[in-house]
C-alpha cells in the first residue's frame, strides 16, 4: 500500500498530474470574491469563513475524478484488483494520497488567503484546524463518489451530483467552527463534530468504495 501511496504522490507532481489544479482554483475563487462583493472590510470579514470553506470544497471536488479514472483507463485498476492488496486498502491509500496533494496544500494556502479576506485574527488557528481536520473527510467521501462513477466516461457531472450532498455536513460544521471563533463564541463543539465526521468517513468509506469498485470492474 505504501508503494501505491508513493506512486500516486509521484504521479501528482509529474506532468499532467493535476497537483496545482485545485490550489490554483482555490486561489482564483478567493481572490475574486473581494472584486465581486466590493471592498467593504466588515462584510468581507463576516463572509470569509464561508468563502474559504466553499472554495476549498469546490477545489477538492475538481480533482476527484482523477482518483480512479486514470488507473481505470490504462488497465492498472484491473491489475491492482487482482494483486495482494485488498480493494479497501487500495482506496484508502489513494484517498490519502489525494488528501496530501489537495487537502493539505489547501489547508496551508487558506491562511494567507484568509488575510486577503480580512479574516479576524483569532479565527486563523480555527480556520487551519477546521480545514486540517475536515479535508480528509472530503477526500475519503470523494473517493467513494469516484469509485461509484469509475466506469463512466467523463462522469464528472454525476460525480459532483453524488458527492456534493454528502459534503454538506462537513461544510456546515467546518464553516460554523470558524464563524463562531470570529463571533467570540466557543468553536470547539462544531470542531469535535467535524472530527467525528472525518473519523466516520476515514473508517467506513474505504469499504464502501471497495464494494463500488468491485461492482464497477465486473
Amino acid at each position: 500500500m505504501l508503494a501505491l501511496f508513493t506512486r500516486d504522490l509521484k504521479l501528482a507532481f509529474r506532468s499532467g498530474g493535476g497537483f496545482g489544479l485545485a490550489l490554483a482554483f482555490f486561489l482564483i475563487v478567493v481572490m475574486f470574491v473581494p472584486f465581486g462583493v466590493g471592498s467593504d472590510l466588515t462584510l468581507l470579514a463576516r463572509i470569509a469563513p464561508g468563502i474559504l470553506w466553499i472554495g476549498a470544497l469546490l477545489a477538492c471536488l475538481l480533482s476527484l475524478d482523477r482518483i480512479f479514472q486514470l488507473d481505470h483507463e490504462d488497465g492498472t485498476l484491473d491489475v491492482l484488483a487482482t494483486s495482494p492488496l485488498p480493494l479497501s486498502g487500495i482506496t484508502a491509500a489513494k484517498a490519502t494520497a489525494h488528501w496530501v496533494t489537495t487537502g493539505l496544500p489547501l489547508t496551508l494556502a487558506a491562511i494567507p488567503l484568509g488575510y486577503l479576506l480580512n479574516l479576524p485574527e483569532p479565527a486563523y488557528i480555527w480556520l487551519f484546524a477546521s480545514l486540517a481536520i475536515g479535508t480528509p473527510a472530503l477526500s475519503f467521501i470523494g473517493a467513494f463518489g469516484a469509485a461509484v462513477t469509475v466506469g463512466i466516461k467523463r462522469g464528472g457531472l454525476l460525480l459532483s451530483l453524488l458527492v456534493l450532498p454528502l459534503y454538506i455536513p462537513t461544510l456546515i460544521f467546518g464553516a460554523v467552527s470558524v464563524t463562531k471563533s470570529v463571533d467570540g463564541l466557543n468553536p470547539l463543539p462544531s470542531l469535535i463534530l467535524l472530527a467525528g465526521l472525518t473519523l466516520f468517513s476515514v473508517v467506513l468509506m474505504p469499504f464502501a468504495s471497495a464494494l463500488a469498485l468491485k461492482a464497477n470492474l465486473n
Binding site: R7, E73, D74, G75, T76, D78
Partner: peptide
C-alpha cells in the same frame, strides 16, 4: 493470480 489484460497497466509519467 497474476493478471494481464488488453491494456498494459503502464504509467506514462513514470
Amino acid at each position: 493470480i497474476a493478471y494481464s489484460g488488453h491494456l498494459d497497466a503502464v504509467k506514462f509519467q513514470l
